[in-house]
Design a protein around this nucleic acid. Structure first.
Lengths: 249, 249
DNA sequence: AAGTGGTCTAGACCACTAC
DNA sequence: TAGTGGTCTAGACCACTTA
């Protein structure tokens, strides 16, 4: 254990933000892994040399960002993506009657290719970098509703295979965590309309030229590092996308 | 001023949440209006009979929900919708290069009609209630991009006229605040694809049958009271919808 | 019973704003 | 200079979980 934060930095940066950074550092260094309980608040406040109130303010923000989860009486844990409510933070397609359902995934294609200019830009890669590109078809209530085309940097996901993707027992982001130690904590998602090409029409069992919802998403890990580029095409005949949900007051 | 909250309610509900409710009550009663500074924290903590820390926790949550805005050294204010960053919380259509721009609005139609079954459901009105229904065309960078069809309950917006809507100097939600004391604080927005009918094709200068993005939004005030039902049709040829924005960590 | 997070207090001092 | 919100402390007691 090093020196306390308050001794290190009279930098004008609030203490609780320094604590937050230190916790994030411990997370991305792998000191605490997904599903782990982190040390109790009392212990952490001593480790960082701050009061319990300051420590709690730092943890509060990390909880708000879905990076940690608190359970009264049990402890504070590193968030797991496969948990219900967290999953639907990132998966926002529901039936038009509002019914939420877990999708089942079918891996359609898996390639190792040179990244296109667009992929390089979105993933902040230098030109000529290679990516794994794979296509998933998602089924909801027995209907094929979504086609995901996903690109990830081959260096970051070194060793990724078709078989691993097929066999993963959990959600994709949970798989990223378990196999590669990569935590998806935020996304930037844009929506537009596009028309089904021959491939998508086939995969979704619709006519070519059918209007589809097109989601374009960059997923980020700690320190705003982009880790995944995804284009989803959604058949919204019976489904819809949750753009903004009610904030309860 | 009444008795303090802590004396009133040993109900098991956390004090800071009771404080939050009391502040919301003062807001919806009109004691503090949009743009007003609310009393200083010290004073409020005495009024509600709680410590400054507890009072701050209540205010913190209201700030997080964009209902209040803090300015260090100046005070805490009731949020105004026409403020830049707040406006784009609700208006989430941007150019595909990411450029944000304020829309200009043209009122296309204004009617006083019996609410349809769907409108009754969304606004939680009893069958047979009447609404004002009006249609706006929104222009971005000189192009007609969005058609909004908006319904509000006539009782809640009593006296609303075509002329008022045409002459309003500010955003629609700011207008709701100023003229009717109605604060929009949250929305529930769903997105799907639809094809342009003759009317929308005409208003947007596109071919009939063009694929458009369809946003279906319920806007809520305090206590989850629905105040507006809106269906927006967006031409996403050069624009896109922000589904989820990056959370900075 | 022991240990965890959840709430709450009663201050202190600092940074910023207005006068 | 006075008044505001922003940060921070060093506790206390409560509610919940686990054993």
């Amino acid at each position: 254990m090093g020196p306390t934060l308050s001794q290190l930095s009279p930098s004008g940066v609030p203490l609780y933000q320094q604590v937050k950074r230190a916790v994030l550092a411990a997370l991305s260094s792998g000191e605490w892994k997904q599903g782990d309980a982190i040390p109790p608040e009392k212990l952490l406040s001593e480790r960082f040399g701050v009061s319990i109130g300051t420590l709690r303010k730092a943890i509060d923000e990390l909880v708000m960002e879905n990076i940690l989860v608190r359970h009264q009486g049990r402890g504070t844990f590193v968030a797991i993506h496969s948990q219900n409510q967290h999953f639907f933070k990132f998966f926002r397609v529901v039936r038009q009657d509002g019914e939420k359902s877990y999708p089942t995934t079918t891996l359609q294609r898996f390639r190792h290719v040179k990244a296109s200019a667009e992929v390089c830009e979105k993933l902040q890669l230098r030109a000529g970098a290679h990516v794994f590109e794979f296509i998933n078809v998602l089924t909801l209530h027995g209907q094929k509703v979504i086609v995901d085309t996903i690109s990830v940097w081959d260096v970051m996901f070194s060793g990724l295979t078709k078989q691993q993707l097929r066999d993963r027992p959990s959600t994709l982001y949970s798989f990223y965590q378990q196999m590669f130690g990569i935590n998806v904590i935020a996304t930037d998602e844009r929506v537009r309309v596009s028309l089904a090409d021959a491939d998508h029409a086939d995969l979704l069992s619709v006519e070519q030229g059918t209007a589809l919802l097109e989601l374009r998403r960059v997923a980020y890990s700690f320190h705003q590092t982009p880790v995944e580029w995804r284009v989803s095409k959604v058949n919204t005949q019976h489904y819809e996308y949750i753009g903004q949900e009610h904030i309860v007051t």
